[in-house]
Amino acid sequence: MPKITILIGFSFVELSTVDSTNNYAMALVHEGMASHGTAIFAHAQTAGKGQRGKQWNTEPGSNIILSVLVDASPVRHLPPFSLSAATALAAYDLFTRYAVHETSIKWPNDIYWRDRKAAGILIENAYHGKEWQWAVIGIGLNVNQVRFPELPRPPVSLKQVTGRDFDAAGLARELCVLLEERWQALLRDGADATLIRYQDHLLGMGRPVRLRHDGFVFETEVLGVLPDGRLRTSGPATASPDAAPGAGGEALFSIGDVEWMFDH
């Protein structure tokens, strides 16, 4: 397998507006024009994507709207979640470069400052048959936006944390450098080392949290994340023994199984 030598972000496409940077990147894949490391940054998008089919809305010109094309051939032997973990670490690296304290990764790959969301990640994959060919890494990170009128639980931005204005496109280029560093660490050190580093910054690790599963809210403790991305928790600390999966012992949850509950 030839070694990939193109740096992430070396090709940096800057758009004034687009429906979705992930759609733009995936179109390059389908047209046979994809190149590893190509980054697509938009100042505004009209149909942004979030996890599990949700729409992601962002104030034009205020935030990082970025998608990166990654040739999956060097990591197709690894658990796909390892790329998600490496990406979350890169976004964490960028936010903590300026916000410094009280930042964490909320499973599976959101960046939180205290109990408020600062960034989200959506990775979409392209296969040839059963072979993983490309990953489109979509990252949305709140930079200068200070009002989030449509959301019941407001997210948080770098400006709100630091009191500073930032150049969103410039930060997106910084993020590409950090993503390249985490990508190289994944190739060099493997999935297990990446997962350990990810868990070092995991929200709720080793302490009580409240989760909701199938309409039932329970308190539990985050024990870690498996290589396939499933969340490990202790059994519910309260309520009846049969109220939630794994009651009285370790419970495993797949992505999308549980919702985190925070005090307002």
Rank of each mutant, 00 (worst) to 15 (best):
W113T: 04
L78Q: 09
I6E: 15
L66D: 08
K3P: 04
I111L: 10
L15Q: 06
S73L: 07
P236W: 15
V258P: 04
L178T: 07
N63I: 09
R212A: 15
T17G: 03
W260G: 06
G48Q: 04
T5G: 03
S11A: 04
R116M: 01
S35F: 03
D115L: 06
L226Q: 13
S240Q: 13
A251F: 11
I65Y: 13
G9M: 03
T21E: 06
S84Q: 12
A42G: 00
I137P: 05
H264M: 12
D110H: 07
R147C: 04
D214W: 04
S67G: 03
E131V: 14
Y92I: 01
D19I: 01
L179G: 03
A88Y: 00
T233W: 09
L202K: 08
S104N: 00
F166A: 01
L202G: 05
V225E: 13
E14M: 01
I196P: 00
P79T: 03
A90H: 01
E102Y: 07
P236Y: 11
T46I: 06
D214Q: 13
I139V: 15
S62C: 15
S67W: 01
I6A: 15
P245S: 09
P74M: 09
G206F: 05
L231M: 12
T38R: 02
G246R: 05
R116Y: 01
L7R: 12
L7E: 12
R76S: 09
S16F: 05
V146M: 09
